[in-house]
Amino acid sequence: MTNEPQAPAGAVQLSEEAISHIDALYRMALRLTGNAPDAEDLVQETYLRAFRSLHQFRPGTNLRAWLFRILMNAFINEYRRQSRRPANTSLEDLDEFSLYHQMLESDFQPSVAQPEQEVLARLSEESVLEALDELPVEFRQVVLLADVEGFSYKEIAEVLRIPIGTVMSRLHRGRRRLQRLLAPCLCQSPSLCHGQ
């Protein structure tokens, strides 16, 4: 036994648990910053802040959501200033795009009985990631928190400190825009590209 001051066992355990979320934090950081070096910096900054304020974390509450909140704050502080691209709020009609309904209206001839499966089979992972990266950041944040990380509306509202109604409308619009961005990737069926 040494006399060195040691972090309480609970803190060690908590920081270990925090580190177990690094893949989730990194993939969020990568989609937000758009490149690996900035994503690594953002994750490092997130953990620096988290370890510094770990004593403020209330055990029994949601550590994962708490870490994402720190990451979002760090992102807004460090990166938002550089790439200010406000969400376009005037183009409401663009936010009602539905890939499925466009597909039904086109002469898209699926080679299988289930056209919805065929559409997904034609979308590469790369094209999905590119489309996500194209979303305005306010929409990207909620889409990633919901569809990639599986947070509830209430958790997203807490992570981003916005009202639940705003979460719902951004999520709806973000998901619709994502489909609109993905439509040209289905160009083997030219009629789907009509109007793009």
């Binding site: 580190i19 934090l25 990194y26 993939r27 690594e40 994750v43 490092q44 953990y47 996500l132 990639v148």
Partner: peptide, 25 residues
């Protein structure tokens, strides 16, 4: 929705980043 989630979740943190975070702690 499921497919979008699957695509994005394939990304992993680089090992050396995890190492750096452990040292930071």
């Amino acid at each position: 929705l499921r497919y979008v989630g699957e695509c994005a979740r394939r990304v992993r943190a680089p090992d050396e980043l995890t190492e750096r975070i452990r040292e930071l702690r």
